[in-house]
């Protein structure tokens, strides 16, 4: 259900960072970011996220919940400057919280693809096939 624009406008001045605003900025920045994974791989990641992650991280990956936000300001605060391979490592080593060790390499790569896409990294034409594919990708903060 959409929020009426009038109400949204009045709340935007006195509320949380609006994710839609962040998304717009992210879209403008994404042209300068390296492509990560493919659209299909990111979509697979989105489906996995919906099935395995939302209970703690919320349906919106930027919202956070029992788990931290995986998109936006708090994500960059945590992960900015670190390698995407480390993000892969964190996920496959500790997630999901109620069954660590259950994610396959392929599933974890798809989740990384989804998270990177959520943070403004455009999908490209090369699928991630192994963790080493993420080695040189540094998670950079999208300028706001």
């Amino acid at each position: 259900m959409p929020v009426p624009r009038g109400l949204l406008a009045s709340l935007a001045a006195c509320s949380l960072t609006i994710s839609a605003l962040a998304d717009t900025t992210a879209a403008a920045e994404s042209a300068r970011l390296p492509a990560v994974a493919t659209p299909a791989q990111a979509e697979t990641g989105a489906e996995l996220y919906a099935g395995k992650c939302t209970g703690c991280h919320n349906a919106d990956p930027g919202a956070g919940g029992q788990g931290p936000p995986l998109k936006g300001e708090l994500f960059w605060t945590t992960w900015g400057g670190q390698s995407a391979r480390k993000l892969y490592g964190m996920i496959i080593s500790t997630m999901p919280a109620n069954n660590p060790g259950s994610l396959s390499q392929a599933d974890t790569l798809a989740l990384v693809a989804f998270i990177m896409r959520s943070n403004g990294y455009p999908p490209g034409s090369n699928a991630l096939t192994e963790p080493a594919d993420l080695q040189g990708i540094v998670i950079n903060r999208v300028t706001q």
Binding site: M1, P2, V3, L8, L11, A12, S15, L16, I18, S19, A20, T54, N58, A59, D60, G62, A63, G64, G65, Q66
Partner: peptide, 18 residues
């Protein structure tokens, strides 16, 4: 639902109070 989703106008999805 998460208040962030409400404020962003992205619709109601199950979430946690925030």
């Amino acid at each position: 639902t998460n208040p962030r989703d409400v404020l962003a106008g992205t619709g109601f999805k199950p979430g946690l109070p925030s």
